[in-house]
């Protein structure tokens, strides 16, 4: 059966991809032992960007408020940790749960509108939460940030040390698991319907499928992933700041996603790594030069590489192998 052959080929490709992520992650561990805290932040943000890809790339819903889901996870894990729940795995699950609930709420609100009003709703939600977190300073620490967390050792063995080795490896493991699960989700019947909704909602409804519950489900999944990212950041840095639930973080996530290419999952990772590495270098020199650069890069992407880096690489690869591909048909 050709089906099983192609199925095993996709499984093989997925395993290869996971191995590649693990390899790059471990290489980072050996090459930059002094920057593990930064690399852990990269992983945390990568989870956020992955979660955004689920909504933007797979469902075609533009959002500038993904920070709401990330921040919900970060604050939930942080607050739980301050109040004595210190098991890191449990904290991640709490963050995931909080993100999922926030995803449900956000989806229920955003899916009422389309186009610009929908985009505005996404921004308004993240700003509202930002203000709420600022106001509720007795719970969240307000503008000083939430501190005083001390997560227990991972699995009762690995301490979260000063160099952030445990946190980084924990994050890398989490990323691999989430990535594998999302590969599976995007290849499920549900994932295919989402792709269909992005391209033509009318056709989907003519098949007898309701769009709203499908999209809402994706918001919940997206919230789960973003919430885990936020929780990871809380555990690793042991501080949760107001910036974790902000328009800036949401807009940056979108930029990273577009830089890497939407609707790929891999693109989300590539975009995050490149963006944050550049930011690490350039923003250290002058944050405003960094803004100019990001702006210029965005304009360049729209003008010259609308499918992002991964899409453009795909296209290049296809152009290079086109003759072979044609002959194979």
């Amino acid at each position: 059966m050709p089906m099983t052959a192609s199925a095993s080929r996709t499984v093989g490709r997925d395993l290869l991809g996971l191995a590649l992520i693990a390899l790059v992650g471990l290489a980072g561990y050996w090459l930059f032992p002094d920057n593990l805290a930064f690399l852990t932040r990269v992983i945390s943000v990568a989870l956020l960007v992955l979660s955004l890809d689920l909504i933007v790339g797979y469902c075609g819903v533009a959002s500038l408020g993904q920070g709401a889901l990330y921040g919900a996870g970060a604050y939930a894990a942080g607050i739980a940790c301050v109040h004595g729940i210190t098991d890191p795995v449990l904290l991640i699950l709490i963050g995931a749960g909080a993100g999922a609930i926030m995803g449900l709420l956000m989806g229920a609100i955003m899916l009422r509108a389309h186009g610009l009003p929908q985009l505005v709703l996404s921004i308004a939600i993240v700003q509202l939460l930002h203000e709420a977190a600022n106001k509720a300073s007795s719970i969240t620490g307000g503008s000083d940030g939430l501190s005083g967390m001390s997560p227990a050792p991972l699995f009762g063995v690995f301490e979260f040390d000063l160099w952030g080795r445990s946190a980084y490896l924990f994050g890398l493991g989490l990323l691999l698991i989430v990535f594998a699960v999302l590969r599976f989700v995007t290849r499920s019947p549900f994932g295919m319907v989402c792709r269909g909704l992005k391209e033509d909602p009318l056709r989907i409804s003519a098949l007898g499928i309701y769009a709203f519950p499908v999209l809402l489900k994706m918001f919940v999944i997206s919230g789960t992933v973003a919430g885990m990212g936020g929780a990871l950041a809380a555990i690793a840095t042991q501080v949760v700041g107001l910036d974790s639930v902000s328009f800036e973080v949401s807009a940056n996530a979108l930029v990273m996603l577009v830089l890497g290419g939407i609707g790929h999952l891999y693109g989300a990772l590539i975009g995050t790594v490149i963006f944050m590495a550049l930011e690490h270098v350039v923003a250290a020199i002058n944050p405003f030069h960094w803004m100019t650069l990001v702006g210029a890069v965005l304009i360049a992407i729209v003008l010259f590489a609308p499918r992002g880096l991964s899409g453009t690489l795909d296209e290049l690869a296809r152009m290079l192998t086109r003759d072979r591909w044609r002959a194979g048909r």
Partner: peptide, 28 residues
């Protein structure tokens, strides 16, 4: 859907008829 194959279109339709079109824990 321009990016999908005819097979995928028809499979999605059949899955919907069988009530399995929006399952997450299954391979399309």
């Amino acid at each position: 859907f321009p990016d999908m194959t005819p097979e995928e279109h028809v499979v999605m339709t059949i899955l919907q008829r069988l009530g399995r079109a929006t399952r997450i824990l299954a391979r399309f």
